[in-house]
Design a protein around this nucleic acid. Structure first.
Length: 119
DNA sequence: CAAGTGACTTTCG
DNA sequence: CCGAAAGCCACTT
């Protein structure tokens, strides 16, 4: 293991934060990084998701770009799957394949953060 | 150690 | 609204 385990602490925090996203809500990469206590590592969040172990259940589809667009290219199989999953949870989307951040953006409560992140 | 890469973000035109 | 450019940080080569 010469990779994906160099900084388990950081990776675990990001994964855990993503796990806290409630059903029917979406969060941007930057938001996840910020909540995980590592602001500015939005790209690292994507790196962790790309390297997510298959055995780990993670609501990766609830993580989108800050502008509401999916991280994948429109038309790709992953994008279709993500769109389907989000739609199934009640997330409203536009015909362009973008999430309506105005309604579905995750606004974590203090209790959620305290109970989830346990700082 | 330098350069390349990426499931990102923000700004500018 | 959309595209280009710069900024960003960790990992890989």
């Amino acid at each position: 293991m010469t990779y994906k385990d160099s900084k388990p602490n950081l990776t675990e925090r990001i994964w855990h934060t993503i796990t806290l996203i409630p059903q029917g809500k979406v969060a941007s990469y930057g938001k996840i990084a910020d909540l995980a206590g590592v602001p500015g590592r939005a790209r690292y969040v994507g790196y962790c998701l790309r390297n997510t172990p298959e055995g780990l259940i993670l609501p990766w589809y609830r993580v989108v770009k800050s502008n509401g667009q999916l991280a994948f290219s429109s038309g790709s199989e992953m994008a279709k799957k993500q769109t389907s999953l989000l739609c199934d949870e009640g997330v409203t989307m536009t015909s362009s394949g973008r999430v309506n951040m105005n309604d579905n953006a995750w606004n974590p409560d203090l209790d959620t953060l305290l109970h989830g992140l346990t700082f």
